[in-house]
């Protein structure tokens, strides 16, 4: 009897575990359906290559959503920072300069978002919707609508460090993304800044009367998001060795989905970094996985929708005191009710 409730309370308490279970179940299904693909290491290396930009974005967005805000402008930052990197490299500047320029561009966009939201008091969904269009526009103008081929970046040290292959197989961007996830976990859960973010998302008035500077925390948060989006743009551009003006355009919804699948509450006040990591991998491997099983490309979105809905429902059931409901249900299934026992 006790086993059921203990199991569920452990699953609920360990951060991100429910969604890790979903990821494991998903991969199990893929392995059963297409063992020739999912028992090899290549498919996972390919995920480690393609998922990191979205994972990095989702990590930043987790903090933004925890603070009760939203940032829709990060896809434009992915394009802008990629352009700054590619353009400066094309013009003979060293790659590290391009990296700093990309980060600085992202930070500037984020800072402007923060000022609009915190000081001018534009709701973040409107402010960042506007800046999203604006910075895509700027990027397209600067690039003249053209893509930039930077294949020459491959032999450089910066490329090796950020998007090289460790031992010839392991994409280094995956390590950077996981490292960033660890840093973000500590910032959110163990740092004053993260605590301020949680209290602001929970109830900004409480945060204010307890002496937190709500406005400057919001500005810092959006600036951090801009920096992170800039970094995502850099590893994307460096990985594919090409900048194109619409890059990042398809990231908005998958990245948001990764955050919500991971268990971060849309209401704010509570962010789950570990969940976001697994959420990003679920989102990033669904399409390839479903296609590999051979059911056909038309099924991809349907399965994606199902998995997302199931994950979010699971998180809600577990977080909203549903643990006891679940464990009671399990008890019912395992031990028949005796009259008078309830």
């Amino acid at each position: 009897m006790k086993k059921g409730s203990a199991f569920f309370s452990v699953v609920a308490r360990v951060e991100g575990l429910p969604i890790a279970v979903v990821l494991a179940a998903l991969y199990l299904v893929f392995i059963i359906l297409t063992p020739q693909v999912f028992l090899g290491y290549r498919i996972y290396m390919s995920f480690f290559q393609t998922v990191p930009p979205q994972l990095v974005l989702a990590l930043g967005l987790t903090l933004v959503i925890t603070a009760g805000e939203i940032d829709l402008s990060f896809p434009a930052v992915v394009a802008l920072s990629g352009f700054l990197f590619a353009w400066s490299f094309k013009h003979g500047l060293p790659p590290w300069f391009g990296f700093l320029a990309g980060l600085a561009g992202g930070g500037l966009v984020g800072y402007i978002n923060g000022v609009l939201v915190a000081r001018v008091r534009v709701p973040s969904i409107m402010a960042t919707l506007a800046t999203q269009f604006f910075w895509y526009g700027v990027t397209i103008l600067l690039a003249g609508g053209l893509q930039l081929d930077i294949a020459a970046v491959i032999p450089t040290l910066a490329h090796t460090i950020f998007t090289g292959r460790l031992f010839g197989v392991m994409p280094t961007q995956a390590l950077w993304a996981v490292g960033l996830a660890a840093v973000m976990w500590f910032i959110l859960n163990r740092h004053k800044f993260g605590e301020a973010i949680m209290f602001i998302g929970d109830n900004a008035e409480v945060a204010r009367v307890m002496g937190i500077n709500v406005e400057s925390t919001r500005v810092a948060l959006f600036t951090l998001m801009g920096l992170i989006a800039g970094f995502a743009g850099l590893i994307l551009t460096s990985e594919i060795n090409v900048f194109y003006p619409t890059q990042g355009g398809g990231f908005l919804l998958p990245v948001m989905a990764a955050v919500f699948i991971g268990g971060t509450s849309i209401a704010g006040g509570n962010g789950v970094i570990v969940g976001t990591v697994f959420g990003a991998y679920i989102i990033g491997s669904l399409e390839a996985g479903v296609v590999a099983t051979g059911v056909g490309g038309y099924w991809v979105q349907l399965v994606e929708g199902l998995v997302m809905a199931a994950s979010v429902i699971l998180n809600i059931v577990i977080s909203e005191g549903g643990v006891s409901v679940l464990s009671r249900a399990v008890r019912k299934w395992t031990v028949p009710d005796r009259p008078g026992s309830s």
Binding site: F186, R190, H191, K192, F193, E195, A196, M198, F199, D202, N203, V206, A207, M210, G211, I212, S265, G269, N270
Partner: peptide, 24 residues
């Protein structure tokens, strides 16, 4: 109090006992 936050956080919010670099 912040409703969704643990009590220990509620006691020290805004006046955290910190380690170096602002970690709690």
């Amino acid at each position: 109090l912040g409703e969704k936050q643990a009590l220990w956080r509620n006691f020290f919010i805004g006046r955290e006992i910190t380690l170096p670099f602002g970690f709690i």
